[in-house]
Computed example of a mutant assay.
Amino acid sequence: MTEHETPAPRRLDARSLRGLAHPLRMQLLDALRLHGPATASQLAERLGESSGATSYHLRQLADHGFVEDAPGRGKGRERWWQAVAQGLAYDSADFEDASPEVRGLTEVFLQEGAARHARELATWIGSRDRLSTAWSRATDMSDMTLRLTPEIALELIEQMHELIDGYRNRATDADAPEARQVRVHTHLFPIDTHRSAAAEPT
């Protein structure tokens, strides 16, 4: 792997979901991925949790390979953690024949992912007045409605991801003016546009 290549995301399976599908664990992993290595106490302060809770859930994440000790950090008994992978891949096809327990875990995983997106959007909206003029013009919150087949929808998703991947590391120079991390959310799902008989006017 070259210096600027992005490692492949970790593909989730039933075992890894058992270690990840918990709101606090997902928040801990997100915090480590976004902000870098931290201790359980630092993460507890950031997330408004007790250090006992963050310590326990960090150990569970470590047991399933999501986090690990951060080398070269900490003094004495102070333990620093870092994320192992910078990306996760979830494919619903991998869970079509899953047990009810695992299906429940996929629900937790997806619901927390949606909640995270909502929190990030709310944070951006609440702080947008502090953005520079250039960044104010370079933000977006859009929705579009298309009529597609499942095959065309999958093609669109793949092309969107390929396009976004092409922009990774375009601003690798630490001195690039106003270079910042950005979050890109993509959602594509079918909607029911048919009114039920009960909703029809009499």
Rank of each mutant, 00 (worst) to 15 (best):
His187Arg: 06
Ala199Ser: 14
Leu88Asn: 05
Arg180Thr: 15
Ala21Thr: 08
Tyr167Asp: 02
Arg116Cys: 02
Gly65Trp: 05
Thr123Leu: 08
Gly36Ile: 09
Leu58Asn: 08
Asp63Ile: 12
Ala174Cys: 02
Thr133Trp: 03
Leu121Met: 14
Ala118Met: 14
Arg137Gly: 14
Gln159His: 09
Arg77Ile: 04
Gln60His: 04
Thr139Gln: 11
Ala118Pro: 00
Leu163Pro: 00
Glu45Pro: 01
Leu12Trp: 00
Leu88Trp: 03
Gly19Ala: 15
Arg15Leu: 15
Ala14Ser: 04
Ala114Gln: 15
Ala174Thr: 01
Ala93Arg: 11
Ile164Gln: 06
Thr54Glu: 03
Thr172Glu: 05
Pro100Arg: 08
Ala134Met: 10
Ala93Ile: 07
Ala62Met: 13
Thr106Lys: 11
Val182Asn: 01
Leu34Thr: 12
Trp124Phe: 15
His4Asp: 04
Gly87Glu: 11
Thr186Tyr: 10
Arg128Ile: 14
Arg77Pro: 01
His187Val: 08
Asp175Glu: 05
His161Ser: 04
Gln159Trp: 02
Ala174Met: 02
Ser196Gln: 13
Ala134Pro: 07
Pro23Arg: 15
Leu20Tyr: 00
Ser55Gln: 15
Pro190Asn: 03
Gly126Val: 07
Asp30Leu: 07
Pro100Ala: 09
Glu49Val: 06
Leu88Phe: 13
His161Gln: 11
Leu88Ser: 02
Tyr167Gly: 00
Ala14Val: 02
Ser50His: 10
Trp81Met: 10
Asn169Thr: 03
Ser92Leu: 04
Pro71Ser: 01
Lys75Pro: 00
Pro190Glu: 06
His194Asp: 15
Asp13Tyr: 02
Gly76Ile: 08
Pro201Leu: 07
Leu43Asn: 08
Ala40Cys: 00
Gly87Asp: 12
Val182Met: 12
Arg128Phe: 07
His57Asn: 15
Ile157Asp: 01
Leu163Gln: 11
Gln111Thr: 07
Asp30Val: 00
Leu163Phe: 15
Gly65His: 01
Leu34Ile: 03
Ala171Asn: 04
Met26Tyr: 01
Asp165Met: 08
Arg77Ser: 11
Ala134Asn: 12
Ala44Arg: 14
Gln181Asn: 07
Arg128Thr: 07
Pro150Ile: 11
Asp175His: 09
Gln42Glu: 13
Thr2Lys: 05
Trp81Gln: 12
Gly48Leu: 00
Glu151Arg: 15
His64Glu: 10
Ala93Met: 10
Ala134Tyr: 14
Arg168Glu: 04
Thr2Val: 00
Ile157Leu: 02
Gly104Asn: 06
Arg168His: 11
Gln181Glu: 06
Leu188Glu: 09
Asp173Asn: 14
Tyr56Ala: 13
Thr6Phe: 07
Val108His: 11
Trp81Ser: 10
Met26Thr: 03
Arg25Glu: 01
Gln60Val: 14
Ala85Thr: 09
Ser132Asn: 13
